[in-house]
């Protein structure tokens, strides 16, 4: 409809999940999630979010990402074209693996969050040797 390009994956969509108390649109950030033997890694595009405005919460297997973007343009500027608005990035995931909460590492650079979630020792795969009797 209206010639919208469905194949473009670099677009963002709003999230209809819990509503924040402050004003403004809520966006669902695009993420990559991948798993290796000892960890789950998550990359999320959150342009405009400063490290101090990003909250990461993990409890009861629910991982919550929320980042607030302060409006960059002062009110003295008259808007000509508006394609994105400052708002909040919000997304929740359910993790099936047991995560070592103490070793979680989060880095935010150039608007991309990289979250490393190491699996607990007991959740890691273990080779079991079968002994012949």
């Amino acid at each position: 409809m209206f010639g919208k390009d469905e194949s473009n994956n670099l677009q963002k969509s709003t999230n209809q999940a819990p509503e924040p108390t402050y004003h403004g649109p809520v966006y669902s950030p695009a993420v990559d999630i991948f798993e290796s033997e000892d960890r789950i890694s998550l990359l999320a595009d959150m342009p405009g979010v400063k490290p101090k405005d990003l909250k990461i919460d993990l409890r009861d297997n629910t991982l919550t990402l929320s980042g607030h973007v302060e409006s960059a343009a002062p009110s003295s500027e008259a808007s000509i074209l508006t394609e994105f608005e400052s708002g909040t990035y919000f997304r929740q995931f359910t993790l099936s693996e047991v995560i070592d909460q103490l070793k979680i590492d989060a880095k935010l650079s150039d608007g991309v969050l990289r979250l490393e979630l190491p699996k607990l020792e007991r959740a890691k795969p273990r080779q079991i040797t079968v002994k012949a009797s």
Binding site: K4, K12, S13, T14, E83
Partner: peptide
């Protein structure tokens, strides 16, 4: 609420 299919999204003032 999907944003318009252009990249990058821009604001001009």
């Amino acid at each position: 609420g999907t944003r318009s299919g252009v990249f990058p999204p821009m604001n001009v003032s």
